[in-house]
Write a protein that binds this DNA or RNA. Structure first.
Length: 489
RNA sequence: GGCGACGUAGCCAAGUGGUAAGGCGGAGGUCUGCAAAACCUCUAUGCAGCGGUUCAAAUCCGCUCGUCGCCUCCA
């Protein structure tokens, strides 16, 4: 593989670094997935979409990505919900795991190569805990196992904190049994009525942080390239993950730590605990998935992004612009009875094509600058429309016309490819309540033909009635020099 | 209290030393029987404020103001 110019911002060094995976062209990537106790909210969605986008782009750049995303299917929140509903914790987890995958599918977020579940990785976690105890990085008290932060000298490096400062501002509940207030649980002894597993320290369940370490090691290896998640996971979750992993293996755990910014509401972080959240299904009732993804990618992934109607509406219109351009050229192609070779196409717009691709790659190479990448997409749309206008102006000049058409075709293909890389499948923008089915096309064609006859005979009131009544059922007619095309409103 | 991010047009947003991308919205125009779509023109002499470095600053430095975040479960 040629030298990569891809740069990624690394949380632990606080700088953009060239992406050089440990074992190119392989790239090992892990993302902190959902805790399955409820519908995920739109802020969670940002994390999933960002991880998916990074993965897609790495693949486009030629890396062989192995991507693992965990499912946390045992924790306090799941247990609490199960109690409230009077069902088993496993039932809650199963239900919302299914919903997680279902909603991701709607969003066009691809499945990871592997989605390990916490409850299926218990043996690996116990092995890891045993190692930590053996190496004196962990200690047992009354069936609980704690990690000793003092035993890991660089504790705090990832989040940029030091132990003294952490303790001054500590809001953590002091547990007198712990050697240090910041020591965290690797294994929690079972409470009555809670799900538990047998262990060398008695029945219990794993602490939150240990599952990710165990899964990374079990399914990717002791050292991986990219570990991603929301910025709120930097401390304590990822800090703890790093500490316990490196303490156990003595090897660097993660080469690039990637964290996405918050999704805000009224400039405040959206979170379950603040109660200011919208779940994914609430949002999808009002906006299609493509709109949502245009919105999420409209700002750089590390910057906060404000969720409100105006911004979503703006994203909706931006998405519509791209979709409409694609639909228009699609329909116009069916009206042009000329065949265009790829060769002619390539000749026509070679320079533009190369330029657009380079700008797109440059944008994405710069720490996945999707906002800038989207602007390239809009530039391509503009270029397509310009060529279309050129077709109209060419009138009887067939060569000119074919040449322009060829250009449109090639840029259309480029646009589709970039949309795919960004996970913006045009099908995600499919409107609800549209006319569908085999009969629709020929029926509307009949009406278009009749209207065309009326226009030729200057019977404009009839022509307009056809158009207006079609509009009433959601069909828009557009008259182009090549003929009339129709679209769902 | 400690640490950190951010402040660019009516709104969103890119831009980290060379003279302000892109989108949304708005205004006018072209095409059209009329529309729609598209195209063209306009919509920040200025990047929170003040000071400094420099031939050159939205970009670097300092101070001030404002917003948000982490230090507790959180994507």
């Amino acid at each position: 593989m040629e030298v990569s110019l891809l740069k990624i911002y690394n949380t632990i060094t606080r700088s953009k670094e060239e992406f050089k995976p440990l074992n190119p062209p392989n790239a090992l990537m892990y993302n902190c997935g959902p805790t399955v106790y409820d519908y995920f909210h739109i802020g969670n969605a940002r994390n999933f979409v960002v991880a998916d986008t990074i993965r897609r782009y790495l693949e486009y750049r030629g890396f062989k990505v192995r991507f693992v995303q965990n499912i946390t299917d045992i924790d306090d929140k799941i247990i609490n919900r199960a109690k409230k509903e009077g069902v088993a914790a496993q039932e809650i987890a199963t239900r919302f795991t299914r919903i997680f995958f279902e909603k991701c599918r709607l969003l066009g977020v691809r499945r990871a190569d592997l989605h390990p579940k916490a409850t299926e990785t218990i043996p690996q976690m116990q092995e890891l805990i045993k190692t930590l105890i053996k190496k004196k990085h962990a200690y047992v008290i009354d069936g609980d196992v704690y990690f000793s932060v003092r035993s890991f000298p660089s504790y705090g490096k990832l989040s940029g904190k030091n132990l003294e400062e952490l303790q001054e501002g500590a809001r953590v509940e002091v547990d007198a049994r712990k050697k240090d207030p910041l020591d965290f649980a690797l294994w929690k002894s079972a409470k009555p009525g809670e799900p538990s597993w047998e262990s060398p320290w008695g029945p219990g369940r794993p602490g939150w942080h240990i599952e990710c370490s165990a899964m990374v090691m079990a399914f990717l290896g002791e050292s991986i390239d990219i570990h991603s998640g929301g910025v709120d996971l930097v401390f304590p979750h990822h800090e703890n993950e790093r500490a316990q992993s490196e303490a156990a293996t003595g090897k660097p755990f993660v080469k690039y730590w990637v964290h996405n910014g918050y999704l805000n509401i009224n400039s405040e972080k959206m979170s379950k605990s603040l109660g200011n959240f919208f779940t994914i299904d609430q949002v999808l009732e009002r906006f299609d998935p493509l709109t949502l993804k245009f919105f999420l990618l409209s700002a750089h992934y590390r910057h906060p992004i404000d969720f409100n109607d105006e911004n979503l509406k703006s994203a909706e219109n931006a998405a519509k612009r791209v979709l409409d351009a694609l639909e228009t050229v699609e329909k116009l192609f069916t009206l042009e009875h000329v065949s265009i070779s790829e060769k002619e196409a390539a000749e026509k717009v070679k320079d533009q094509w190369i330029m657009f691709r380079r700008y797109f790659d440059d944008a994405m190479d710069d720490d996945f600058n999707t906002a800038k990448a989207l602007s390239i997409l809009h530039d391509i749309v503009s270029a397509i429309h310009e060529l279309r206008t050129g077709i109209n102006e060419a009138k009887e000049d067939q060569d000119q016309k074919i040449s322009h058409l060829a250009g449109v075709k090639l840029l259309r293909n480029l646009l589709l490819e970039m949309l795919e890389i960004l996970g913006l499948d045009p099908a995600l923008g499919k409107k609800s309540g549209v006319l569908e089915g085999e009969a629709v096309e020929p029926l509307i064609k009949i009406l278009i033909d009749i209207r065309e006859k009326a226009r030729k005979e200057k019977a404009f009131s009839i022509a307009d009635e056809v158009r207006n009544r079609l509009l009433e059922i959601g069909v828009v007619l557009e008259d182009h020099p090549q003929g009339t095309i129709w679209k769902n409103k």
